[in-house]
Design a protein around this nucleic acid. Structure first.
Lengths: 218, 218
DNA sequence: CGGACATTTTTTGTATACAAGGAGGTTGAC
DNA sequence: GTCAACCTCCTTGTATACAAAAAATGTCCG
């Protein structure tokens, strides 16, 4: 699949917004960005509109586009929805998952365990992501998997951050094992609860981090 | 809020796709459409990209955009997700709903009842929509309400269709009352179950309609 | 007569040019 | 001195022009 420049630009800008290169409220100037990318305004505008639709920037007509980092409230809301969607994925997957997928989950968890002993949060996140995406897929509902993955992607930087909290890695690890156990047992309710809690606690941890950052700034 | 032509065009095209003016697989010609709207290709392309991101059309690079009606499988998947999301809204709303909102739900249901006796499926759908959106809002999670509303919008034509089935109106009506009762009682699990079933049955009815349409075509 | 290659034509993607609306500054009046 | 109106400049939205890629057509060879 060949790609347009506009798509590549959108991806780059998305990364920059997520990693904080552009702070909240910053106006993204079409001409300056176009110059910096070495393209005209046309593909750049397309990229900005794409970002606007995915909610990363706000587009005020005749005013410009502004990066719109989700505030603490919105982030908590998003984590709540994420938890519920993963729970649904888990409940459906418990009834539909294949043995092969269970083996994949075990494999991902094994890699996770390695990362835990190595205290490598980045490596952990990578395998953790694989773990979750397998569950999305095994929900047997491609649309659900798509939507859940999309939200996962949007929360990625925030999910990632809380993994650096002391003791979070082993805790997350044991939650993973509980999830797999429920899936293997075909217990939809248990899988849903385990996944909901697993994601919800991420929201909690993240909120804690936010609060600490804020107080540190004062 | 002033609006761009591109947005108006996107809305118009969205309607046309939903109501079947453009059949599945049809290529949307940029120049022809631009002429018909009396604009240049620029705003029209922006509109098409917007539609592509919301999933109503598929955009093959260097090939063009094609309307992509969801197939039966995808529709069932979407209904399944819709049911789950409404269930979540209901569960949260049961704990967070205000007395005013409960009164609003009663009012919407009263209008629904009128529509049932009048056998007016269109009027019913209108109030039905209000009913559901109140629950989305009362979930107390603006992000969830947004996402749920967005999916509702996408399924609108299909949700609407099944209301014309014989006996569906009174059945839907009684489901509504069960939902309100659960919400009033603050019973989150009951509200979730009632809403999930209410939406899931819509998917079932719709599938039935699809099957009948298909067999009639043979 | 069929298939493959070259050419033409159509269509998308990008660049540039133009128009229109808003932000900010300046000037004038009170 | 302050507020308001006007004017200017800048930015966005739209139109047109150009380039590149894919589809269509025709031609040549087997």
């Amino acid at each position: 699949m060949e790609r347009r420049r506009a798509d590549i630009i959108a991806e780059t800008l998305e990364e920059r917004i997520c990693d904080g290169t552009y702070p909240d409220g910053e106006r993204l100037d079409e001409v300056r960005l176009a110059e910096s990318f070495g393209v005209s305004r046309t593909p750049l505008r397309e990229a900005l509109q794409k970002l606007a639709l995915s909610g990363l920037v706000e587009q005020l007509p005749r005013r410009g586009v502004f990066v719109r980092q989700p505030g603490p409230v919105e982030l908590m809301e998003m984590f709540e929805v994420m938890a519920e969607m993963e729970a649904v994925c888990g409940r459906l997957a418990a009834a539909r998952i294949t043995d092969e997928a269970l083996a994949e989950l075990d494999a991902a968890n094994a890699e996770c365990r390695k990362a835990v002993t190595a205290q490598d949060a980045d490596a952990y996140y990578l395998e953790n992501e694989r773990f979750h995406h397998i569950i999305y897929r095994e929900s047997g509902n491609a649309f659900l998997a798509q939507e859940t993955g999309s939200l996962h992607r949007r929360l990625k930087p925030f999910r990632r951050m809380q993994l650096r909290l002391r003791g979070r890695l082993p805790q997350s690890m044991s939650e993973h094992e509980e999830i797999v156990a429920a899936l293997r047992a075909g217990d939809g309710a248990a899988a849903a609860d385990a996944l909901r809690a697993h994601v919800a606690v991420q929201g909690e941890k993240f909120r804690f981090l936010m609060a600490r950052l804020k107080s540190a700034a004062e």
